[in-house]
Amino acid sequence: MQTRANVITFHNQPLTLVGKELKPGDKAPDFTLLDNDLHPVSLKDFSGQVLIISAVPSLDTPVCDMETRKFNEEAAHLGDDVRILTVSMDLPFAQKRWCGNAGVERVQTLSDHKDASFGTAYGVLIQELRLLARCVFVIDKKGNITGIHLVKEVTNEPDYEAVLQMAKDAL
């Protein structure tokens, strides 16, 4: 498996990402994730929709919490053709508990803990931590990646306006 060193940092310490670097224009790779009820979910389950896929290290951290809540708020303004997914290595049970406590109903949380299928296919698995890097992917209705926003310092939030504009452009 390909690795890429020094692509991101965590508290300014360089980290290694596992998987190929994706670029806008690439076909979005398939994945198998678990929903909050342990059902498998793949990319084909969202065919015909614009996807915002927000990869985060853990919902139980302040920045991931803020990010997912922000996307939950924004989801109401994007219409039915846009779905927002938050993917982390958190267990599905923890994701379900977090969503209930946070009142998150418009963002679907999915777990990559079992196989790291998403992390490796999208090149955002952090080798040293077995967590996902903070990265947002926008996928159009045809299944092509139209935008990628990799946050270089894991402890920083993404540029929400840029991501939302990428999603609107994909419609």
Score class of each variant (00 low, 15 high):
A5K: 15
V7Q: 14
I8A: 06
T9R: 13
Q13Y: 01
L15F: 12
T16Q: 04
L17R: 01
V18M: 10
K20L: 08
G25H: 07
L34Y: 08
D35T: 06
N36F: 00
L38I: 03
L38V: 04
P40K: 07
V41I: 14
K44C: 00
L51G: 08
I52S: 08
V56W: 01
D60E: 13
T61S: 15
P62S: 14
M66Y: 13
M66D: 12
K70I: 07
N72V: 10
E73D: 15
E74Q: 15
A75P: 11
A76N: 02
A76R: 13
V82F: 09
L85I: 11
T86S: 15
S88V: 02
M89K: 08
D90I: 03
L91E: 12
F93R: 02
G100A: 06
N101R: 14
A102N: 03
V104A: 06
E105M: 01
R106K: 15
S111D: 06
S111K: 08
D112R: 05
H113I: 14
H113A: 13
H113M: 14
F118I: 03
T120G: 00
Y122P: 04
G123C: 06
V124G: 02
I126T: 04
I126C: 09
E128V: 05
F137Q: 10
G143Y: 07
N144S: 12
T146G: 05
L150A: 05
V151M: 09
N156M: 11
E157P: 01
D159W: 04
E161L: 11
A162C: 00
A167N: 04
A167Y: 11
D169G: 01
